[in-house]
Design a protein around this nucleic acid. Structure first.
Lengths: 361, 361
DNA sequence: TTGAAAGCGCTAACAG
DNA sequence: CTGTTAGCGCTTTCAA
């Protein structure tokens, strides 16, 4: 009588299962529907590729189990295709309404594309940018959006590495294509040109004795570049101009303070018109002018930047530069989606800004 | 002479490798360092647990390969521990400076915790909230932050499901603990109480004939609740009060328009004091009052909500309610980090607001 | 139209 | 202190 064949030895110690959460997986759904996981996966991605009867069973099982696909697993499994469906964005400050609106544009345009937004802010610090970049890239995002074109060597290396892997890398808020230099997609405008236009507007109005009130944020390079353009244009026209830097206060207060220092410019050429790094600063100057009874633009003409809603309400309404802040985000989203779709790098875009002349200049 | 044993049959067709990207993996680093992947993994998480010599070799290999850990893989591998290191946040609008500041608080307090922020906005739509919730939860975030306590049944189900799995779910900007009802962690304040305080302030100042100018955004429930509290308090004191809704314009313009309609209240009780759903609306009223030469607070007292920087600059400066908008984000971050750390649900927090009496009331 | 097998990159569990 | 093995949940490749 043959003895029963020995059963394969059971493992000496049962290993602990690793599932710790109660979440339904593809396998659970599949079991409930009487198929295997791959069929459910197919149903979710290409419903028409499964038989109608199977589809119905799967749909029921999905509902019954409350299944939510695990995107981490999905990304990992198709890492080669670069389908992370997640866009990482890095801006100087979330609380700054300029960037908040850009992020809104980005998020809105990403809506419906199946891409989520991974957001981080640098606090205008280049070192923190590199740090955050490293953290964001660890998620293997399908695209990367960063602000401006000044980065630490480490950050640049990370960006290049990402780009080399086929991840679209987009620099927003700036547009300085450097012929010959391999670089990233830029979506924005030339801040030097804006500064130049600001100076030319004031000069064209007949003002002599100009000032550019720069941002007190040392790493707001774009504000500084507008200042550079402003001073260069004035110099080119032979008009005296100088730069003052706003103090590190809340912006409207900083503008008030800067206004005061413009009025009493010890030995400086008499200032008749001032351009500001942003509308908040310019508004502060307007408030202070009103308080002191200084005529605007009679004694001093004022010009802002940004076209925030407040400026229109002032008396006189503030002349300013309208910027495509929402559109920059939208354009970045469109560019990266198209790049993801086509496989080609996204094209640069120079977005239009306009100088709006109101009463203050 | 024995024939050579047949080699195991090679697969008929070589399978395509699946790696499509050029990124260094743990195995690459390990090979370069002459160890195995797990040792590198240990070095990255607990450097003191590998021998100094090995550590040095690994450090060199890491530098040489430019390795960046793949967080998707890491999360997946330790899914049971819930270590997604990613916080999902859902707010009505990114461009709205109130929420932008809250997100900034959240992001700042998350800095250094190793958690990234996954952000989405609902556009004040409950349906879009549910949709976005589904998308965000697919990433298996370690915590979820949503705005307010009104959600669709589907959204509630998702939130409860997440909470049941041990994911902290935090509702921000509101605080209405309902005794007995199982609910989520709430971090914010009671908007009804704020409305009540606004009414009592105006009544205490001797104004009779009150109005609450509500937000034109239909789903800004918190603004409506402040209105409810306002009207209830007025009724309780026997003071006539009514609610008007601001038109759907840009906020400052909407405030201007609402102001005009308050002045000519056909048959309504004469309005002597108005509280607004936010400072932008109130500021619009102030601008219009100045334009029309209407005395504030002589003819009409005005009271805002939010304490935006603009209000302080107006003439008279705007009375308002200061809200802890940055602190709400910070507190949410702290609460969820602690919850993640301790394993217990995060505690509710009622954050303080203050009524700031300036010149306009 | 469906399934089996393998593998994405990493880490938990266990063994030395 | 280091390694082996297995597996996270999904998708790709190949076969039926």
């Amino acid at each position: 009588m043959p003895r029963p064949a020995p059963r394969p030895a059971a493992p000496l110690v049962a290993r602990q299962p690793r599932r710790g959460h109660g979440r339904a997986t593809l396998a659970d759904v599949a079991a409930a529907a009487g198929v295997t996981a791959i069929t459910v996966s197919r149903f979710l991605r290409e419903p028409q590729r499964v038989a109608p009867a199977t589809a119905a069973a799967i749909a029921a099982a999905l509902r019954q189990t409350g299944y939510l696909p695990n995107k981490q697993a999905g990304v990992l499994a198709s890492a080669a295709a670069g389908t992370a469906r997640m866009v990482a964005a890095l801006i100087p400050s979330i609380a700054n309404s300029i960037f908040a609106e850009t992020v809104q544009g980005l998020a809105d345009a990403l809506q419906g594309s199946g891409c989520e937004l991974l957001l981080a802010s640098t606090g205008y610090s280049a070192e923190r940018e590199e740090e955050q970049l490293r953290a964001l890239l660890g998620w293997f995002p399908s695209a990367l959006v960063v602000t401006g074109r000044r980065h630490t060597p480490g950050a640049l290396a990370l960006m290049r590495q990402a780009q080399a892997r086929g991840t679209p890398v987009i620099e927003i808020w700036d547009h300085h294509p450097e012929p010959g230099a391999e670089s990233f997609t830029q979506i924005g405008f030339d801040h030097g040109q804006v500064g130049q236009a600001m100076a030319e507007h004031l000069i064209g109005r007949g003002y002599r004795g100009l000032a550019y009130v720069d941002s007190g944020v040392a790493e707001d390079f774009r504000a500084h570049e507008r200042g550079d353009g402003f001073l260069a244009a004035a110099a080119h026209r032979g008009v005296p101009a100088h730069r003052v830097t706003a103090p590190a206060l809340e912006a409207i207060d900083a503008g008030r303070s800067a206004f005061v220092s413009l009025l009493d410019a010890h030995g400086q050429p008499n200032v008749r018109a001032a351009a500001f790094a942003n509308d908040h600063l310019a508004s502060g100057a307007m408030f202070e002018a009103r308080r002191r009874g200084v005529a605007v633009p009679g004694r001093l003409a004022l010009l802002g930047f940004g076209d925030f809603s407040l400026g229109r309400q002032l008396d006189p309404p503030l002349s300013t530069v309208h910027t495509p802040r929402f559109e920059i985000g939208q354009a970045a989203a469109r560019a990266l989606l198209q790049s993801l779709h086509s496989g080609n790098p996204a094209a640069d875009a120079r977005l239009p800004w306009t100088l709006i002349v109101r009463g203050s200049s």
